[in-house]
């Protein structure tokens, strides 16, 4: 049982880390558009690997 004195503070530290991550995600706009990302998988198959490039000029289209 004494281990709780270690584990619980540790879990609080974890929670603190997660909270920081959450606040960062909100600030950096991860939750700004909740509708588009679920369609994203259909829209881009190959060129998402290089985000921000957008240089494809349709040569691979058939």
């Amino acid at each position: 049982m004494e281990t709780l004195f270690i584990l619980i503070p540790l879990s609080i530290l974890f929670v603190g880390g997660i909270a920081a991550l959450l606040l960062w995600a909100i600030r950096s706009g991860q939750y700004d558009d909740m509708e588009r990302p679920r369609h994203e998988i259909f829209l881009d198959d190959d060129d998402r690997a290089a985000p921000g490039q957008g240089q494809d000029r349709g040569d691979g289209e058939a």
Partner: peptide, 24 residues
């Protein structure tokens, strides 16, 4: 969302464009 995709792609391909993000 295809409209967003279209606009984003088209704008990103312009020379001099740093970033184009379309929020649906």
């Amino acid at each position: 969302p295809a409209c967003c995709w279209l606009i984003e792609k088209r704008l990103s391909a312009m020379p001099g464009m740093r970033q184009a993000i379309v929020n649906f």
